[in-house]
Structures are given as C-alpha cells and as structure tokens.
Design a protein around this nucleic acid. Structure first.
Length: 385
RNA sequence: CGUGGUCCACUCUUUC
C-alpha cells in the first residue's frame, strides 16, 4: 500500500490524475486496501485538477466499500470541499464520518471555520468554534487568524480588533500572518496609518515583516492610486532583504495601467524581467484591463492576440475583462462573440461571464439566447447571484 | 520505514 501511495502522490502532483486512478483500481484488483493516505492523495489531486465532483464520488465509493477515511484524509476532504465553497457538503461529510467513529481534530474544525469565513458566513464560523470548544478542542492561532481574516475581508475591523484582544487574553500568540491580515484589512479600508502601526507592532512581537506584509501595503497604496508612495515602498523593499516578487510588480502594473500610464506599466514589466521575474497571465490581464478602462477595448483585444502568440494562455478573467470593456463601450455585439470564442477555446465560463453575456444579449433583445444561457449556467452548477 | 492536511498580499463582476 505504501508503494502505491507514493506512486499516486507523485502522479497527482504531476497532474496525471488518470494514471493515479488506474493505480487505485489496480491496487483493489490486487487485493490491497486503500488507506487514509491513499484517499488524502487522491482527494487533493482530483481537486487540484478542478474536479470536485470526482472527489465527492470517491468519498461515496469509500463509504460503500467500508474503506477507512482517517482524520487526516477527512481534513483534506473538508479542505477541498470548503475551497470550492461547498461548506455544507463538508459538514455532511464530517457528520457521516463521526457516526462511523471518527474523532474530529483541530485541523478539521479550523478548515471548516476558514471555509465559513471564505463564504462570508461569520456566524457559521463562530458556531463552529463553539462546537469545537464543546468537545474540548481549543481555538488555536490558525482558528483566530481565519476568523480575523474573515472579519477583515468584510471590512469589520472593530470586531477583528476585538478578536485580536481575545486571542491575547486566551494566551494565543499572534503570528506574522495575524499582522499581515490586519495590514490587509486596514489597507482595504483605507486606513494607512493603521497599516504602518501594525507593521511596527509586529516587530515588537519579534516578528519580521514578510513579503506579504509589504505586498498588502503595496496593494493598499496601489488601490488608492498613491503611486509615488508605492514607488518609494518598492525602493524600500529593494533596500531591505525583502525582494519584490512578480505579484508585487503586478499590483503596480495594474495601478499604472488602469490609470492610463501604459508607459510606466511597460517599464515595470521590463524591470521585473531584469530581476529574473516572469510576467504571468495576471500581468497580461492588468494591461488588458488598463486599455479597457481607458476606452480602448479593441487595442486590448489586439494585445490579447499578441500575448497569446507569445505563449500566454488567456483565461476566464482575460475574457471577462475584455467583454466588460466592450460592454461599457456599448459594443454589446462583441460581447456575445467573445463568449463564443472563449467556449471554442475551452475557457470555462464563470458566473461573471454569464452575467456580462446575458446583459449584453438582453440589450440586443436576444431573449431566447438569454434563456438558453441561463439554463446552461445552471447545468454547469453555477449559482445565480 | 512512507513525499498526504487547516490561516495572510496581485488581475475579471451584471445592476451604472
């Protein structure tokens, strides 16, 4: 079993999910019983392959055959379901396993708490914390970080601060992540002074600011279009041993491009290349967004073609950005065309894609097609918002 | 004796 597990782990890591599945079948044929390790590897591999349905099916198969899912595999399963937004399915799974004698762990509860936070269900998250306490598990640093992050993302900073206090009272030490979460939260609420305050505060706890601390700050400055401050911060990072990464550059490139300064955006792309960092599809999408925001969707589309020839793969965000660019220029006909194009290229639509496309079709009066699209969206298990 | 699990920063969002 160990041999199979190791092989399967390697295959999944390589994205070779089909071969992994074949090995799984082979091990059963050879009379071997897959264990928790086997399932954890497959749950994670299938999920990374974007196939959450396969994960659910595998779990059901495990239940039918009385294969054991241990706490470790359960936590992996809960994580992949939660990351897909299917927290209630995750709860169902835990309930089933508990009935079979599984003792839930901190990791399982933390994963659920984070799952609730990510779907903005803070009440669900707190209820889960109560449940874990009731069976004698104490909220740890990760539990608190998830909750604080959930509150910060909803811009409920006062409640987040209260939790930080409570964390302190309960003797749970903050981590660098805790401060990074707060810096990000204050950045999103435009409280730059609080960002810098927390940057200092983390040093008092003997924690060094990380690339994420600076990244959160950079993001705040860029979103507020405080571009000269952002440039200064970039220089400061270069002067410290916190080297900017591609993501850091992407924030600056996005800000410059969206505010119409394509030149500076391109200069920054050259800078990042000189530093050995590669532009990604995110970088490209920022440039495309900038052109769209400045009323130049056809230039943006041209750029997309050029980038595609250079080997970048346009994704759902590229297309949504372009379509929304055309939509704001009232070129609704192009929206439907691009939706066709992305389908033909195998780029999977998301809820935003359908919303934009349906809006465009409605303006064009193509109501039957709207209906068809709506049904198709439901068939793809997308939930209308 | 085995490579498996939970928390932090970047791009898209109809209604305008």
């Amino acid at each position: 079993v160990t041999g199979y597990n190791c092989l399967m782990s390697g295959l999944c890591r390589d994205g070779r999910v089909e071969e992994c599945r074949n090995l799984f079948e082979a091990m059963k044929v050879n009379g071997l019983v897959p264990d928790g390790y086997t399932f954890s590897v497959m749950f994670d591999g299938f999920s990374r392959n974007g196939d959450t349905e396969a994960v659910v099916n595998l779990f059901e198969e495990a239940m039918r055959n009385e294969f054991e899912i241990d706490a470790y595999a359960c936590s992996v399963l809960v994580n992949v379901l939660s990351k897909d937004g299917r927290v209630s399915k995750a709860e169902e799974v835990v309930e089933t396993l508990v009935k079979k004698g599984l003792v839930p762990t901190n990791v399982i509860y933390n994963t659920l708490v984070d799952g609730y936070c990510k779907i903005r269900d803070v009440d669900g998250a707190f209820t889960t914390v109560k449940r874990m306490s009731s069976i004698g598990l104490k909220p740890d640093r990760i539990t608190y970080n998830s909750l604080i992050n959930g509150l910060c993302k909803m811009e409920r900073m006062n409640e987040a601060e209260k939790l930080v206090m409570k964390m302190h009272e309960n003797g749970v030490a903050p981590s660098a992540d805790t401060f990074n979460i707060l810096i990000d939260g204050y950045g999103r609420t435009n409280k730059l002074d609080k960002c810098f305050e927390n940057l200092k505060e983390m040093e008092k706890f003997g924690l060094k600011p990380t690339i994420v601390s600076y990244g959160s700050l950079m993001n705040a400055l860029c979103k507020m279009r405080k571009l000269s401050e952002a440039e200064t911060l970039l220089q400061e990072m270069l002067g410290k041993d916190i080297l900017p990464n591609a993501q850091t550059y992407n924030m600056l490139i996005d800000a410059y491009s969206s505010s119409g300064n394509q030149n500076r955006a391109c200069e920054l792309i050259n800078d990042m290349k000189r530093r050995g960092l590669s532009p990604s599809i995110v970088t490209c999408n920022s440039l495309i967004k900038g052109l769209c925001k400045n009323g130049l969707p056809s230039e943006a589309e041209e750029l997309m073609h050029k980038l595609r020839d250079e080997g970048f793969r346009p994704d759902v965000i590229t297309y949504n950005t372009l379509m929304s660019g055309y939509y704001s220029c009232s070129n609704v006909h192009k929206v439907a065309e691009l939706h066709e194009e992305m389908k033909n290229l195998g780029v999977k639509s998301n809820i935003a894609t359908y919303n934009i496309t349906m809006s465009a079709l409605i303006i064009e009066g193509r109501m039957q097609e709207v209906n068809k699209l709506y049904l198709q969206m439901l068939r793809e298990n997308l939930v209308p918002d």
